Amino acid sequence: QTQEFDNEEEARKAEKELRKENRRVTVTQENGRWRVTWD
């Protein structure tokens, strides 16, 4: 699953929550947008 964010702060917040659920999370930056991908 993927979700896009406008800034790193929001993306990192989402990453932190997903990691609490023991998910594999990848955060990438593309064209000024932050993308959080998880399984």
Rank of each mutant, 00 (worst) to 15 (best):
R24W: 12
K20R: 14
D6T: 05
T37Q: 12
V27L: 05
E30F: 09
E15F: 08
K20L: 14
V36E: 01
Q29A: 07
V25Q: 00
R35H: 11
V36N: 00
T2K: 05
E9W: 14
R19H: 03
A14F: 15
R23V: 14
R33P: 01
E17K: 13
T2Q: 09
E4F: 15
D6M: 10
D39T: 10
D39Q: 09
F5W: 05
E4D: 10
R33T: 08
E4R: 03
R23I: 14
N7C: 13
N7F: 09
F5R: 00
R23S: 12
E4Y: 15
T26W: 07
E10M: 07
E8M: 04
D6K: 05
E17Q: 13
D39N: 11
G32Y: 03
E9S: 08
E8V: 03
A14R: 14
K13S: 09
E10K: 06
E21Y: 11
T26Y: 13
A14M: 12
R19M: 09
Q29F: 15
K13T: 11
R24K: 07
V25Y: 04
A14W: 15
K16V: 13
K13W: 13
R24H: 15
K16H: 14
N31E: 10
T26P: 01
L18S: 03
T28H: 04
T37P: 01
G32P: 02
E21I: 08
R24D: 13
K13D: 12
N31D: 12
E10V: 02
F5A: 01
E17R: 11
E4H: 08
K16E: 10
E8I: 05
R24P: 10
E17I: 12
A11E: 00
F5M: 02
K13E: 11
Q3N: 05
A14E: 03
G32V: 01
T28Y: 07
Q1N: 14
K16L: 13
K13N: 13
E15W: 07
E10P: 00
R33E: 03
L18V: 02
Q3K: 14
E10A: 11
E10Y: 03
T26C: 12
T37S: 12
R23L: 15
E30K: 10
L18P: 00
Q29R: 10
N22A: 08
E30S: 08
R19S: 10
R24I: 14
K16R: 10
Q29P: 08
L18R: 07
V25P: 09
Q3G: 04
F5E: 00
K16A: 15
T26A: 07
L18E: 03
N7Y: 07
F5I: 01
Q3A: 14
A11G: 01
A11K: 01
T28M: 08
E9N: 08
R23C: 05
D39M: 13
T26Q: 06
E21N: 13
Q1E: 12
L18T: 02
N31L: 05
T2R: 08
W38F: 06
E15T: 05
E15A: 15
R33A: 09
N31W: 05
T2G: 07
T26S: 03
T28I: 11
K20A: 12
R33H: 03
K16G: 07
Q1R: 10
T26K: 05
T2F: 15
K20G: 14
E21Q: 11
L18D: 02
E9P: 11
K20I: 09
V25H: 01
G32T: 05
Q29L: 09
W34I: 01
R23Q: 14
Q29D: 07
R33Q: 09
N31Q: 05
R35T: 14
R23K: 13
R23P: 12
R23M: 14
D6L: 07
D6S: 10
K13I: 13
T26N: 10
R35K: 12
Q1K: 11
R24Q: 13
E21W: 09
E10H: 04
V27E: 00
R24S: 07
Q3I: 15
R35F: 15
Q29S: 10
E30Q: 11
E21T: 14
R35N: 06
Q3D: 06
L18G: 04
E9F: 13
D39H: 09
K16P: 01
Q1A: 12
E30R: 09
V36M: 02
F5D: 00
V27T: 03
E9A: 08
E4I: 15
Q1H: 13
R12K: 09
E17Y: 07
W38M: 05
R35E: 04
V36A: 02
R23G: 12
N22F: 13
A11C: 12
E4V: 15
E15P: 01
Q3P: 03
E15D: 02
N22D: 05
E10D: 14
K16N: 10
E8L: 03
R19W: 13
V25T: 03
V36I: 04
Q1L: 06
N22E: 05
R35Y: 12
E15C: 05
E17T: 08
V25D: 00
E17A: 13
V27P: 01
R35D: 02
Q29H: 14
A14Q: 11
T2Y: 14
E30T: 10
E21V: 10
T37V: 09
E30V: 14
D6C: 09
L18K: 07
A14N: 04
A11Y: 02
N31I: 03
E17F: 08
V27K: 01
R33I: 14
E30M: 10
K13A: 10
V27I: 09
N7P: 00
N22K: 10
E21A: 05
K20P: 03
V25E: 00
N31P: 02
V27A: 02
F5Q: 00
R24M: 10
E8D: 01
D6Y: 06
Q1G: 12
E9D: 11
F5T: 01
T2N: 08
E17H: 10
V27W: 01
Q29E: 14
F5L: 01
Q1I: 12
E21D: 13
N22T: 06
R23Y: 15
Q29W: 12
A11I: 01
N7T: 15
T26M: 09
N22Q: 09
R24Y: 15
T37Y: 06
V36P: 01
Q29N: 13
W34Q: 00
E8P: 04
E30Y: 11
F5V: 02
E4Q: 08
E8A: 03
W38R: 02
W38L: 05
E17G: 06
K16T: 09
N7L: 08
G32L: 05
R35A: 08
W38V: 10
R19A: 13
A14H: 13
A14T: 05
W34N: 00
E9V: 10
R33K: 15
A11M: 03
T2D: 06
R12A: 03
A11N: 00
V27H: 01
A14S: 06
K16I: 11
T37I: 10
V25M: 02
E10S: 10
Q1S: 11
T2H: 06
E4K: 03
V25A: 04
L18H: 11
W34Y: 03
R35V: 15
D39I: 13
W38T: 05
V36D: 00
N22V: 03
N31R: 04
Q29V: 13
T28W: 12
W34D: 01
E4S: 09
L18Q: 04
R12E: 04
E9H: 13
A11R: 00
T37E: 11
R24T: 15
D6H: 07
A11Q: 00
R19E: 10
N22H: 06
T28V: 12
K20D: 11
E21P: 06
R35I: 15
R12T: 04
E15M: 06
L18I: 04
Q29I: 08
T37G: 04
V27Y: 01
N7Q: 04
E8H: 04
R19P: 02
F5N: 01
E4P: 02
T37C: 05
N22I: 05
E30W: 10
R19L: 13
A11P: 00
G32A: 02
W34R: 02
V36T: 01
T28P: 01
R19F: 09
V27G: 00
R24A: 13
V36K: 00
T2M: 15
K20S: 08
W38Q: 02
T28R: 07
